[in-house]
Amino acid sequence: MKNAHDLVLEAKAQIHEVALEDAEAAIRAADLLLDVREADEFHAGHIPGAINIPRGVLEFKLSNDPALCARELNIVLYCKTSGRAALAACSLQAMGYRQVQSLAGGFDAWSAAGKAQVAANLPNFE
């Protein structure tokens, strides 16, 4: 029986992961930078220019938004460490998207490298 780790390894064998040192160029060239983490993770910090569509609703959101339906979109995905993004990239490829890349190491690697990030300024209700 497979576990989540097995599924991620299988997905990574079928997708293109962009190395951290090539990430900024890949993001500049992308039509769409997708953060597939949950909303609270995104609001805590994300890569500038990213759009948040959590992994659990990704296929539905892309299918229902005419601006995101074009299969020739150049898409870069990321999550916390790259597992969810790999699974998402595999799903998008199965949907017919032809230019999909996943950020190796995810947001954790991006952040550890000291690269630019944005955090939401949410009001404090305490």
Results as ranks from 00 to 15, higher is better:
25 A>H: 11
53 I>E: 00
58 L>E: 09
95 M>S: 12
105 G>T: 07
12 K>T: 05
118 V>D: 03
103 L>V: 11
33 L>F: 13
86 A>M: 05
51 I>F: 03
19 A>G: 06
57 V>T: 15
115 K>A: 00
93 Q>M: 15
115 K>F: 01
78 Y>W: 04
116 A>F: 00
39 A>H: 08
34 L>A: 09
17 E>D: 11
79 C>I: 08
75 I>K: 02
5 H>L: 14
67 A>S: 14
45 G>A: 12
28 R>W: 07
55 R>W: 02
112 A>R: 04
39 A>Q: 15
63 S>G: 09
11 A>D: 11
113 A>L: 01
106 G>W: 01
11 A>V: 02
93 Q>F: 01
31 D>N: 14
66 P>L: 10
94 A>T: 06
1 M>V: 10
12 K>F: 04
103 L>C: 01
56 G>K: 03
9 L>G: 02
52 N>S: 11
99 Q>L: 02
63 S>W: 08
19 A>Y: 00
121 N>C: 03
2 K>V: 05
46 H>L: 10
41 E>A: 15
84 R>C: 12
125 F>K: 12
38 E>H: 03
29 A>L: 03
94 A>W: 04
32 L>M: 04
113 A>C: 00
51 I>R: 15
119 A>E: 13
123 P>D: 06
83 G>N: 02
82 S>T: 14
94 A>R: 14
35 D>I: 02
81 T>E: 08
102 S>L: 00
50 A>Y: 03
50 A>W: 02
122 L>H: 14
